[in-house]
Design a protein around this nucleic acid. Structure first.
Length: 334
DNA sequence: AGCTACACCTGATAGC
DNA sequence: TGCTATCAGGTGTAGC
């Protein structure tokens, strides 16, 4: 589901309730939703709880200890303002300081404070949701992890991580300095900045695109080149820029490459303004509400329907095992 | 470095 | 009424 606009809607929705809140407790109902969580271990090596990580099934015992580690370490943490890079979302955390001489935090209530070295990391995968709910609200479907938080203004709330397919996860992760400034979770260091990041380097991206032989759709999906782009918005940006998805990066002129980046920003901005793309209940904001951008899709999921620009039937092909939708007239191969 | 194939999952839908 | 196959917004790894 969630690509940059959806994750950004979630981040923005979380911010008021989470910034400055304290975690009162945690319940891990399904440890598979902690796939990215690395328990504190003997040497800090991933998987030193025996099993887990990507593509590896968690045993019951390993799952239970991972869940216990997460519940213990997250409880009591102070949460700061949620951040995002591409599809990765994280909330910097500050450990409870027992009898810390209360540093004047009048205007600084929203900042991580001295130096947050850890974050509560979330990736929504294909079907993850972060939901803010009243304490007595009924359970949503597929709730895998529940946090109880308390905020000075908003009082006590539940922060539920729901995920049908379990490709997403929560984790506690270390924050490290990011190239170019700021900090990112360790698990997101290899993720490029996204096109809405003020520090995104347009010229470097255009050069990188034009240096590759791969088809441009694959390049757009490469989170190490540009982040936040998934299958929907790749197809939509290519349609808007009139570029065939299999055009080699090398075959793009500088003008076309820049145009493509601009169309990507356009589609992200519009989708964000419309609350993201929801096909079913898979993607919803923190209040469980769907977005409207599905009505504005021109190519994605419209195989056989007329191109809104020229009327020719939209085609569907498979690229890298995933559906690609494009207009065979507007988007000519070169 | 780049590619494919596959792993991790649940659930909706289509076809027999 | 099953059963099976296919599909779905993502990412990380192994193996060539």
């Amino acid at each position: 589901m969630p690509e940059l606009p959806e994750v950004e809607v979630v981040r923005a929705g979380l911010a008021p309730a989470v910034d400055g809140a304290r975690v009162l407790g945690a319940e891990v109902r399904d440890p598979r939703a902690l796939k990215r969580h690395v328990p504190l271990g003997l040497d800090g090596l991933p998987g030193d709880d025996g099993l887990g990580g990507h593509g590896v099934t968690l045993t019951a015992a390993a799952g239970a200890s991972r869940a216990a580690d997460f519940e213990r370490r997250v409880t009591g943490l102070r949460l700061a303002a949620p951040q995002r890079r591409g599809k990765f979302l994280w909330i910097p955390v500050v450990p409870p300081v027992p009898q810390a001489p209360p540093v004047e935090r009048s205007a600084a209530e929203s900042t991580p404070g001295p130096a947050s070295s850890q974050a509560l990391l979330a990736h929504l995968g294909m079907s993850g949701q972060l939901l803010l709910r009243a304490l007595d609200a009924p359970d949503d479907r597929h709730v895998r992890i529940r946090l109880w938080i308390e905020h000075r203004v908003h009082g006590e709330l539940r922060l539920d991580f729901a995920d049908q397919r379990l490709f997403g996860s929560l984790a506690l992760d270390g924050l490290v300095p990011a190239a170019g400034g700021g900090s990112v979770p360790e698990q997101a260091v290899h993720i490029a900045r996204d096109p809405l990041d003020p520090r995104f380097d347009d010229a470097a991206f255009v050069a990188a695109l034009r240096a590759r032989a791969s088809g441009v759709k694959k390049l757009l999906l490469d989170q190490g080149l540009v982040s936040g782009v998934g299958n929907i918005y790749a197809d939509e940006a290519l349609w808007r820029a009139r570029v065939h998805p299999e055009t080699p990066g090398r075959a793009l002129g500088p003008r076309t490459a820049r145009e493509l980046l601009q169309r990507l920003r356009d589609v992200f901005a519009q989708a964000l303004a419309e609350g993201g793309t929801s096909f079913d209940e898979q993607y919803v904001n923190v209040n469980g509400q769907a977005g409207y951008f599905a009505h504005s899709l021109n190519a994605y999921g419209r195989a056989g329907e007329p191109c809104p620009r020229c009327g020719r039937a939209i085609r569907r092909i498979v690229i890298g095992g995933r559906s690609s939708h494009f207009c065979p007239r507007c988007q000519r191969r070169r």
